[in-house]
Design a protein around this nucleic acid. Structure first.
Length: 455
RNA sequence: CGGGGUAUAGCGCAGUCUGGUAGCGCAUCUGGUUUGGGACCAGAGGGUCGUGGGUUCAAAUCCUACUGCCCCGACCA
């Protein structure tokens, strides 16, 4: 099977000249944007609003989204999930089978095709994936199975707001697990739990799993993954000790039931709940100096729902005893388009965005302070080619703008490293390297600069 | 869905009360002077004033209907 990271590395362009790029920077803040991530996404040319809660992803924003998706894919694949791609448009008949065509209400965007058939823009895919499953899978030997896709969803929110944080059209990674019994489903749940911890950590985020509403099934198998941010929509309460837990490493054995259960148990032991699930009595027993009451952004949600869909859909497998049983299912969602906004909430300062290295749209911004000058042009070309040779993503500012404007743009779009080439340092054969996150600068030779940013 | 706003050049706004044929800043283009943290001078281009209907000699401006967008509340990756 061709893995997506390999596919993406074939198509990704590693270098770009700003003079030839499409990067519409806004100097002024559009008045609609209330929260900092929304402002910066518009100003840095990541997205453009096309309608209420509907956004076009501009080239720089798409690069970030793609990098997030690549990390999500790697961790989903590592945990044993398998990617497919289901359509955005779905037939209403499928949703009538589960009873959700009526139950979903106005949040579902309903459409009629030319033959007057009832269609809808999918807000989620439980029905469709269950239909796919029941069409092909007959035996317990084919389980466990976890199918996921990354696809656009539409939920006709009453009031979309906060840019891509709460949009109507949004990208979602949704995974669906199928197991022969509840014990198997619990292990499937734990696999996703660990995959999520790893995914958010790789994105540079500290995520906290919190008990969430379980719906009709009950039990303890639903968690929201929350990152702390003052602009978050959720009120959260937790025991600070959860922040010190070690994230499971890449060598985690996802087939080892005990190992995963131990990890999940450790992570769910400290108190952590959103306001809906908050238990004052339990919170009161958390030592005073470890209490955290804050706001958070929900970036992931996992839950087990047993046979809620498999039963009405007749999604059964034949067990070793020859008896057919409906499969036990769970679903697991991450919102990449929301994550872009959440990441900016977590990584910005007064000058603009400061992307974590893993998901920065480019790794390096190469700034030519005197375009047209033979020496600076030549030095920049040398750096540009050296970075290209090492497959380091570079955005080369070869425009003839003034120094101040270039610095402002570079800080705004927030690439992790800036290599600044100007006559001043070049007089000594040096260039300047600036780390965006903390502003630390080094005046070094070109060779040293390339090594420095290469890490 | 209820409440409150708003709609004039790519962005931010003035002009509306008191009707007379559209302006400012930024951005863009041209020329010049500049050039290490968002320069300066001179010139230029760009607008069915959200849409439809109405009043009037005349509508961005008054009346009316509609629509888009934003904000505040209850639901959600």
């Amino acid at each position: 099977m061709i893995s997506f990271p390999a596919f993406e590395s074939l198509t990704r362009c590693h270098k770009m000249r700003l003079s030839r790029y499409f990067l519409p920077i806004l100097r002024d803040t559009p008045k609609d944007a209330e929260i900092v991530s929304h402002r910066l996404m518009l100003r840095a040319g990541l997205v453009r609003q096309q309608s209420a809660g509907i956004y076009a992803w501009l080239p720089l924003g798409l690069r970030v989204l793609s990098k997030i998706n690549a990390i999500i894919r790697q961790e989903q694949d590592r945990s044993g999930a398998i990617e497919l791609l289901m359509p955005t448009m779905q037939s209403a008949d499928l949703w009538r089978e589960s009873g959700r065509y009526d139950a979903y209400g106005k949040e579902m965007l309903r459409i009629k095709d030319r033959h007057d058939r009832d269609m809808l823009f999918g807000p989620t895919n439980e029905e469709m994936v269950t239909d796919i499953f029941r069409s092909y899978v007959r035996s317990y030997k084919d389980l466990p199975l976890n199918l996921y896709h990354i696809q656009w969803k539409f939920r006709d929110e009453i009031r979309p707001r906060f840019g891509t944080m709460r949009s109507r059209e949004f990208l979602m990674k949704d995974a669906y697990s199928f197991d022969v019994d509840e014990a198997g489903a619990r292990h499937a749940y734990n696999r996703m739990f660990v995959a999520y911890l790893r995914t958010f950590a790789r994105l540079g985020l500290t995520s906290i799993p919190m008990r969430a509403e379980t719906g009709p099934i009950g039990g303890d198998l639903s968690h929201e993954f929350i990152i702390l941010a003052s602009t978050g929509e959720s009120e959260v309460y937790c025991d600070k000790s959860v922040l010190d837990l070690a994230v499971p490493g890449p060598d985690t054995d996802f087939n080892n039931v005990e190992e995963l259960q131990t990890i999940v148990s450790n992570w769910t032991k400290p108190y952590a709940a959103t306001s809906e699930m908050h238990d004052e009595a339990a919170y009161a027993s958390v030592p005073e100096d470890r209490k955290v009451a804050a706001r958070g952004i929900e970036v992931g949600h996992i839950f087990y729902f047993g046979t809620k869909y498999s039963e009405p859909f007749g999604a059964k497998v034949t067990g070793p005893d020859g008896v057919d049983r409906p499969v036990h299912m769970g679903s697991y969602g991450i919102g990449p388009s929301r994550l872009v906004a959440a990441l900016i909430e977590a990584f910005h300062d007064d000058q603009g965005i400061a992307w974590p290295v893993e998901i920065a749209p480019f790794h390096v911004g190469l700034i030519n302070l005197k375009v047209g000058d033979e020496a600076t042009d030549a030095a920049c070309e040398t750096v540009y080619r050296a970075l290209e040779a090492r497959n380091i993503d570079v955005l080369y500012d070869d425009t003839d703008a003034r120094a101040g404007g270039k610095f402002a743009t570079a800080d705004l779009i927030g690439l992790p490293w800036q290599i600044i080439v100007g006559p001043k340092s070049l007089a000594d054969g040096k260039v300047e390297v600036k780390r965006r996150a903390d502003g630390e600068r080094h005046v070094v030779t070109i060779e040293e600069a390339v090594l420095l940013v290469a890490g």
